[in-house]
Simulated assay, not measured.
Amino acid sequence: MSVTALHRRYKVSTDAIYRHQRAHLPPQLRAKLLAGPDTAIDIDRLKETESQSLLANLIALRHRLFASMDVAEEAGDSSMAARVAGQIHKNLELTGRLLGDLATGTTITNVTVLPQYVHLRVELVRALAPFPEARQAVAAVLHTVEHDAAETMVRQPFAVPA
């Protein structure tokens, strides 16, 4: 840590920090600090331990955030509750990214919102132009399927359709 950071954190004068450094740091430790970090580090091992530490800290922080949410709700402070809810959301999002995909069942993707589906739909209806009755029947089916998918997303955004 820099002397300035130590000064701010512990409210100790920079002179006192320098005096402590001269009087109490052995030469070997001073040399190691000046040389910088050890470059013979097992990166994979470091990533694993840091990920575990990050996850543990995210969980601990989330517990504190939920406690803050309780306090905000008990006090009737909707502004504070909204800010805390935003931080909880960020915490959960980061935890999810750290852990990767947490889905344990089937993942359903609503293809009706994909650009490829829209392109396929346009081309299919266009190809049926010479056959007006078939075109109208296919367009009606597509409309029904898209409407049902939209209704399902509105009613149950995370539900798996039957």
Results as ranks from 00 to 15, higher is better:
142 L>D: 10
66 F>G: 03
32 K>N: 11
25 L>Y: 11
1 M>A: 13
134 A>Y: 06
81 A>E: 15
69 M>P: 06
26 P>I: 05
152 T>D: 03
25 L>T: 10
45 R>G: 08
61 L>K: 13
136 Q>C: 07
131 F>E: 06
153 M>P: 00
149 A>L: 06
10 Y>G: 01
108 I>D: 15
48 E>V: 04
103 A>P: 11
64 R>P: 01
7 H>Y: 03
12 V>C: 04
156 Q>D: 13
68 S>L: 03
85 A>K: 14
35 A>E: 02
143 H>C: 12
124 L>H: 08
121 R>E: 09
18 Y>W: 06
46 L>W: 13
135 R>I: 01
34 L>G: 11
68 S>A: 10
102 L>Y: 01
9 R>W: 10
155 R>T: 12
120 L>Q: 07
152 T>K: 15
20 H>V: 07
79 S>K: 01
123 E>F: 02
139 A>D: 07
13 S>I: 08
39 T>H: 13
79 S>A: 08
91 N>W: 07
47 K>D: 12
137 A>E: 12
65 L>F: 06
78 S>I: 02
157 P>C: 07
162 A>T: 09
115 P>Q: 01
57 N>R: 15
113 V>L: 01
115 P>I: 08
122 V>Y: 14
7 H>N: 15
85 A>P: 12
156 Q>K: 14
135 R>V: 00
139 A>M: 05
97 R>T: 02
138 V>Y: 12
111 V>R: 08
160 V>D: 00
5 A>G: 04
60 A>W: 04
157 P>K: 08
148 D>K: 01
159 A>N: 11
32 K>H: 08
83 R>Y: 13
17 I>V: 14
138 V>E: 09
150 A>Y: 14
103 A>L: 11
